[in-house]
């Protein structure tokens, strides 16, 4: 029985050690600023098109579905409110993070995994560089910085997508939609919508890097690590969103 638990317990321990060292390196030199900016470009600018597409169509679909449901209560005018609250609180952070997890956790795992199996990680250590300092910490800082920003963009584009449906399909007045959306949001929604992507960023960057750095078994191993990184980071996003929502609901 204990033997079955030994392996997962070891993996969790390794993950926490990696996370601890990556966090400690944020305040300890040397700092690789250029690597942080390169990662911000890859994660932030690179993910922008899929975040825009996902946000817009999610908002549009939400507006169509909600308008249909609200019509039964004669409350079609509240479409903007429902779209805004759902997007800012839940769907914006979760969907944006899922897109970034699919794109970047896999990217990190495959890049670091390839470096691991071709002995580049060992070479890095042999040549005087801490791989966690050089590879993990910049990815962590970059993800934590750009994911909340991407979420803000995703939320806005989603609300705009809802507006397009409300205005052109449901023939609502523009002011009615935007007023309803704007007045529905309070500071706790904004806080919730920004804390979530910040926390998810840790899951995405650390899980991606962890699976990359623990890759074994050649190119086949790289494929396996990539898949595991996407699956684990995506599931973690759902688990974490549950707990964060639970905290905010009980406040």
């Amino acid at each position: 029985m204990l033997d079955i638990l030994k392996f997962p317990a070891l993996r969790v321990q390794e993950f926490y050690i990696l996370a601890g060292r990556a966090l400690r390196n944020i305040v300890r030199g040397p700092h690789y600023a250029s690597d942080i900016f390169i990662q911000m470009d890859i994660i932030g600018v690179g993910s922008l098109p899929i975040v825009l597409m996902t946000g817009f169509f999610t908002g549009a679909v939400m507006a169509m579905q909600m308008a249909k449901a609200l019509m039964q209560y004669g409350a079609v005018g509240q479409t903007g409110q429902v779209v805004a609250i759902t997007l800012v609180r839940e769907l914006g952070p979760a969907l944006t993070s899922l897109m970034v997890a699919g794109r970047n956790a896999s990217g990190m795992a495959s890049e670091l995994g390839s470096m691991k199996v071709t002995e580049q990680i060992d070479a890095m250590r042999a040549l005087g560089t801490d791989p966690i300092q050089k590879l993990v910490t910049p990815r962590l800082i970059a993800t934590c910085t750009v994911l909340p920003l991407l979420t803000i963009i995703g939320d806005f584009v989603g609300i705009f997508g809802g507006f397009v449906i409300a205005y052109f399909v449901l023939n609502q007045a523009a002011s009615q939609y935007w007023n309803s959306a704007w007045q529905a949001l309070d500071y706790s929604d904004i806080a919730q919508g920004l804390i979530k992507p910040f926390v998810f960023a840790f899951a995405i960057a650390l899980v991606g890097c962890y699976y990359g750095l623990t890759t074994t078994g050649g190119t086949q191993g790289v494929g396996r690590s990539t898949t595991q990184a996407v699956v684990v980071s995506s599931v973690l996003i759902f688990v974490l969103t549950f707990f964060i929502t639970r905290i905010f609901v009980s406040l």
Partner: peptide
Amino acid sequence: IRSNIGMLFQEGGLFD
């Protein structure tokens, strides 16, 4: 210590 050791890795270990 490693600054006095050179190593050629089996796979080369060159940074792509």
